[in-house]
Amino acid sequence: MSELPKKTNAIPNKVIDLLVSDTLRKNGINLDDAKGKLSPDQKQMLKELVEELTTQVNEFVDKTTSPKKGNK
């Protein structure tokens, strides 16, 4: 899908996918219309934003869920 840093699955992806799809459908959003509104620049910006957030989340999760390594 992308070159996003892997992992970070708190909830199965299918569940999230279902929730997001359903929310869009429920609110009458047409995905093709929505896609058409983004300029290439905006796409690039959002892509970078998501990548940055993913990195930050991974770092945070690593720090909080594996607090001590090599400390027997």
């Binding site: 997001v20 892509k47 998501v50």
Partner: peptide
């Protein structure tokens, strides 16, 4: 909980963005 919450939120963002062909 905090960590899981953040992960879940990020998953939502990533999924949404993927659906919009941004990634």
């Amino acid at each position: 909980d905090v960590a899981v919450n953040i992960q879940a939120m990020l998953q939502i963002l990533v999924t949404l963005v993927a659906k919009l062909d941004i990634l």
